[in-house]
Design a protein around this nucleic acid. Sequence first.
DNA 1: TCACCTGATTAGGCTACCCAAAAAGATTTA
DNA 2: TAAATCTTTTTGGGTAGCCTAATCAGGTGA
Lengths: 143, 143
Amino acid sequence: MRPLDVTKREEEYLETIYILHKNKGVIRVKDIARIMNVKPPSVVDALKKLAEKGLIEYEKYDRILLTDEGRKIAEKTYSKHVLLTQFFVDILGIPPEIAEQDACQFEHYVHEITVQRMKEFASFIQENCSYVLKNFLKEKLEE
Amino acid sequence: MRPLDVTKREEEYLETIYILHKNKGVIRVKDIARIMNVKPPSVVDALKKLAEKGLIEYEKYDRILLTDEGRKIAEKTYSKHVLLTQFFVDILGIPPEIAEQDACQFEHYVHEITVQRMKEFASFIQENCSYVLKNFLKEKLEE
DNA sequence: TCACCTGATTAGGCTACCCAAAAAGATTTA
DNA sequence: TAAATCTTTTTGGGTAGCCTAATCAGGTGA
């Protein structure tokens, strides 16, 4: 196993590609650029690097595809994204848009155990004192 | 009001300076370097930029001091750091070292409302179903 | 089929951040 | 106080990531 080191930013590109693939099948440079808030040349730079690292398949003017390794990273990141967002919204009552933004950054740093624990905590509370949670959220959402 | 834009990394330097000042009073380049895991020349680069932005007072070979503006940023960041760490440890039962690391990154991105809400949530749970929380933590800490 | 449009790519250049090696300043010690 | 030592700073250079302007490829309508 090569000791790949994937930067935060590369992880974001992988995640974007993963989501585009999931939603539309086709992946275009300009869509990646739009979503990531950069210009197309920056996307091309990134694609070259990701291809060199074996995380995507990419031939210029051709299709863009995640390799198994790239997809693995993207899936892991994306699942953290989803779990973090859920926790912020469902447990803390954070407005979805803000929760998204927070998740979108934290997902690249947070330890596996922390996300896992958030998930377990959410279930535990919902099972054992869901009415307390409801009160908390009610109070916060009313403010 | 100048529209300062402070990078994540600069925020980290400010926070380190703030903590060193709080703990020891004196601030040395080599201590900053050790804590931030960089070499002294990198610290000097950073100090120059922070001084240009008016966030620290710095004359070479002389003392390093936060300005009011610099301290304000450092304090805000540090308080997020503390609150995030507490939440991870006290509510989720994350090992302190990991909690520290997670907090240390997230503190630079997290919205004010999210940290605030974590704080309120922690109090709310501790007041309203501390016993459920205890069970959760017990279960997790035993594993 | 050719001129035009759109999207992708290349070329060249910028900033933030980091480093090693060498020079300069401060400090300690003989 | 002069030499040795420690700390800080400068110099010169590297990488990641982004941009604008120019070029290239592919499709489309006249």
